[in-house]
């Protein structure tokens, strides 16, 4: 059980960090910039929300297999940790992106413009004005992605299969236990899951409340 939960945490942490690095610039692009085919890009990025995980997993499996388009350029990640990591990043991207984008959209462009007229440079504007403004949103988006990855099942099973220590994460482990009719162990694992999820959702809600109290949004 420990091995499966450890793997789940490793996967969720790496996925959440990847999404922070990848999602923030993307969210910035979507929130502030205008460019051709923007709705198209948005639709593609949000597509994992509506796709069944098995469909996403199926395409990834095909692409990442040794003969697949990505497999042939060295990314033969099927049934490997790297594969479920890539799948998780794509699958949780809409959640993180939506949260980041909302946080960025709340930043008043006029405030940044006035900061420029006050002689505050680009880096200082990000560090002193934007980041303190959006950090609760960033953190809550990242936690959401983390929680979502923990609970993932379909994509991971399709891309990674069920290899202990490599791709057998906690959700799949529980599925395995039930298949083997080991209900007692499955119940303990499920309880751990409920506790973790509850703490995460509570953290996200607390962060949102804190964000409102800092900026005054929603208080008048």
């Amino acid at each position: 059980m420990t091995e499966a939960f450890f793997l789940s945490f490793k996967l969720a942490t790496l996925t959440a960090l990847t999404l922070l690095v990848l999602g923030l610039p993307l969210a910035y692009l979507l929130a502030f910039k205008r460019f051709p085919f923007k709705p198209l890009l948005e639709a593609v990025l949000l597509l994992p929300l509506t796709l069944p995980p098995t469909v996403l997993g199926f395409y990834l499996l095909v692409l990442l297999s040794p003969d697949g388009a990505l497999g042939r350029i060295g990314l033969d990640w099927a049934f490997r940790f790297e594969g479920i990591w890539l799948g998780s990043v794509i699958f949780s991207l809409p959640f993180a992106l939506t949260a980041y984008r909302e946080a960025l959209a709340a930043v008043d462009v006029e405030v940044l413009e006035v900061a420029r007229t006050l002689g505050v440079g680009r880096w200082a504007r990000w560090r002193r004005v934007v980041l303190p403004w959006i950090w609760p949103g960033l953190l809550s988006g990242t936690l959401l992605a983390f929680a979502h990855t923990l609970g993932e099942f379909g994509v991971v099973l399709m891309v990674g299969g069920n290899l202990p220590g490599e791709t057998r994460v906690a959700s799949i482990y529980i599925f395995d236990l039930v298949q083997a009719l080991d209900f007692a162990t499955a119940e303990r694992a499920a309880l751990v899951f409920v506790a973790i999820s509850f703490v995460l959702v509570l953290a996200v809600r607390t962060l949102e409340a804190r964000w409102r109290s800092i900026t005054g949004y929603g208080t008048r």
């Binding site: 008043d108 006029e110 405030v111 413009e113 006035v114 900061a115 004005v129 303190p132 403004w133 800092i214 900026t215 005054g216 949004y217």
Partner: peptide, 9 residues
């Protein structure tokens, strides 16, 4: 500007 543009945090 009209809205004063103070940094809210």
């Amino acid at each position: 500007p009209q809205g004063y543009a103070l940094v809210p945090h």
